[in-house]
Design a protein around this nucleic acid. Sequence first.
DNA 1: GCCCAGGTGGGTA
DNA 2: TACCCACATGGG
Length: 216
Amino acid sequence: MKNSLMFMYHRLVRHFGPLHWWPADSPFEVVIGAFLTQNTAWRNVEQAIAALKQHIPLTPAALCALPKETLEALIRPAGFFRQKAQRLQLFAQVLQERYQGDLDAMLSGPLPRVRQELLAFKGIGPETADSILLYAAQRPSFVVDAYTRRLLQRYGLLRGIENHEEVRALFMDHLPHQAALFNEFHALVVEQCKTFCRKRPLCESCPLQSRCATRF
DNA sequence: GCCCAGGTGGGTA
DNA sequence: TACCCACATGGG
């Protein structure tokens, strides 16, 4: 497994180069993006974040102070806007109350404990928790999403019955816990899937073509 | 029109 | 525990 994962990683790096994720100007903007991108295309998230940035600085305090209806209207392009507005404001409020708005303080304890604390929030599941840990705090917590599962399955590394934590464990158990590696690996998985592993086969110039186990 | 997109939480059997 | 569904917009 370790060899398969590292083979995949090196092929992807060679093909796509460094991707410099997460596209955001601050750690708190990463958090906002992590909520907004849930089951949502990133281009829609970009619209929402741009609208939000025009109205407030992206800080916990400013987010708390915004009337709920205003927040809903601003993030509307990202979909599920009522849910996301409520959950974002709840997160920002707790961050203010427990940590005086200091995201680094919230994310700096022992990794399993911090991850559990994130997962306890309404609106933060495993992917969002790991995205926040990895991309807002540079903690080595591997991000598994629909793309990761699709890619591993396509390359015969999954049976398809594994749950989220089992898929994540494949990476956590077989790779060195380095934030820079996890950061780049997840970004490459997303890029690979967007480019080559959509519904229809598109194998021309695919960097992983030689290992593809899917029969079309 | 239909399908999909960097999920999550609540309800039901 | 294991499904099923609501949540909502925008682009191909």
